[in-house]
Design a protein around this nucleic acid. Structure first.
Length: 423
DNA sequence: TCTCCGATTAGAC
DNA sequence: CTAACGGTCTAATCGGAGA
């Protein structure tokens, strides 16, 4: 008996960060809006009006500022607390539709709707409900594989006639061929700029070209990943739904500074914040790290200034998730890496060699470490209940001048009572 | 020559 | 006034060191 195709939906929020801002500022419905990355550096989310003005994704703000101001574009600093909270609401709404779902990113979720009767009606209802319950518009793309669901989602986004829902499984073979022939390979999930160019050299320009390319040659020239992508385009699922997020194998916390920094003390202050951040993430997933990697960066865009990008990876004698322990090492490393006379623009820490708590190789000879777990537990509890930064390590916050620029931040509508507008 | 491992690359969002 | 360009994460692949 032939197996019926999987009905895998990709639900993707439209212009997510901008949409989050608009939920609390309905007056901005027709205003072109963009949201900027950390440090107000690049454009990371655009309303349709802003897209129409030719403002590109990832474009540095200073490049498009003039055009933007000319057309009355409102630019906002990113407010991740708000977006994370809105994301949770959307994902929780979607999770009611299938126990088999995967939160793929802050604004995307795969939902397995295989076996659902009246799929079309259900998809429209799902969009409606997310809109009513959260205020966030979404589009639904359905296909037999993740890659085709992604592609279907793009169609749903692009063609107003689809009303936000597109099911690839509804197409006949001939319709599929025609559709894929009209789409650029670069639109496929997993095919980025570099590979698009190399594919084009071999005459593979459309999605249909890729789908029908000679598999062995493709694999030899481009590797396994692209072979999997091809199979997915052919309707053979190679990328599984990951219902449980696996533990992170590496945790990074880093930031560009608002201004350049010349003093060690300020770098150490910043570093202790990064350490606190990274260790909190580590504890949140119940892990320990045995490798810490600290780095400093000068401004790579200022080639007129001397460049210096030192880093050092330090294996720890014992794995830990204790901010204080990590902070001592990081502080020491910053001191070792620092050279006076440079304008530092960025720093950070990477935690590696991550294992679940208690699953470590213990060195017989090392005295058993007093991990301070109870202290860290209390600290996480307070910071969770009263907001990040309620309790800090003493080296944090003595110096300023490294904090990022955020001149256009919206209030924290969903996480701060004081931000709720008075009626 | 093979294997291991760290560094680099490419991609996503 | 000027200068101004994100942050995390994974997997594959590359390339050098050592066996």
């Amino acid at each position: 008996m032939p197996q019926r195709a999987q009905q895998l939906a990709l639900v993707d929020c439209n212009n997510f960060y901008v949409s989050c801002e608009r939920v609390f500022r309905p007056d901005l419905k027709a205003t072109p809006v963009v949201v900027l990355s950390n440090n107000d550096g690049c454009v990371v989310s655009r309303s349709n009006e802003a897209k129409a003005l030719g403002i590109n994704m990832g474009q540095p703000w200073f490049e498009c500022k003039d055009v933007a101001n000319e057309h009355g574009v409102l630019a906002l600093s990113s407010n991740y607390a708000l977006y994370a909270d809105m994301s949770n609401r959307v994902m929780s709404t979607l999770s009611d539709y299938s126990p088999r779902h995967e939160v793929y990113s802050i604004d995307e979720c795969f939902v397995d709707l295989t076996g659902t009767p009246k799929l079309r009606e259900l998809s429209y209802a799902m969009r409606e409900r997310v809109m009513t319950w959260t205020g966030i518009p979404v589009c639904v793309g359905i296909g037999p594989t993740k890659t085709l669901a992604k592609l279907a989602n793009q169609i749903a986004k692009k063609h107003p006639r689809s009303q936000g829902v597109f099911n690839y499984n509804d197409l006949t073979q001939a319709q599929q061929d025609k559709l894929l022939h009209q789409m650029d390979v670069g639109e496929v999930w997993g095919i980025g700029r570099k590979i698009s160019l190399r594919l084009a050299e071999r005459g593979i320009r459309t999605v249909q070209d890729l789908r029908s390319a000679h598999t062995a040659t493709l694999r030899a020239d481009f590797g396994v990943v692209i072979e999997k992508t091809q199979r997915e385009l052919q309707g053979i699922a190679c990328i599984d739904l990951q219902e449980m997020a696996p533990h992170k194998k590496q945790i990074v916390s880093s930031r560009s500074f608002g201004q350049s920094v010349r003093e060690v003390a300020v770098l150490k202050d910043a570093m202790s914040t990064f350490v606190a951040n990274a260790c909190a993430k580590l504890r949140a997933q119940g892990s320990q790290a045995a490798l810490i990697h600290v780095f400093l960066h000068t401004n790579r865009f200022r080639q007129d200034l001397p460049q210096y990008n030192p880093s050092f990876a330090l294996p720890l004698p014992q794995p830990t998730h204790d901010s204080l322990v990590v902070n001592r090492w990081a502080d020491y490393l910053v001191g070792r890496l620092f050279r006076p006379g440079y304008d530092y623009k960025k720093a950070g820490i990477m935690l590696g060699d991550i294992t679940p708590n208690g699953h470590c190789q213990v060195d017989w000879l090392e005295p058993k470490q007093a991990t301070g777990s109870a202290l860290m537990h209390a600290l996480d509890g307070l910071n969770q209940r009263f907001g990040r930064g309620t309790v800090k390590v003493s080296t944090q916050g003595a110096f300023t001048g490294w904090q990022m620029r955020q001149e256009r931040r919206s209030p924290s509508y969903t996480t701060d009572w004081n931000a709720i507008p008075s009626v």
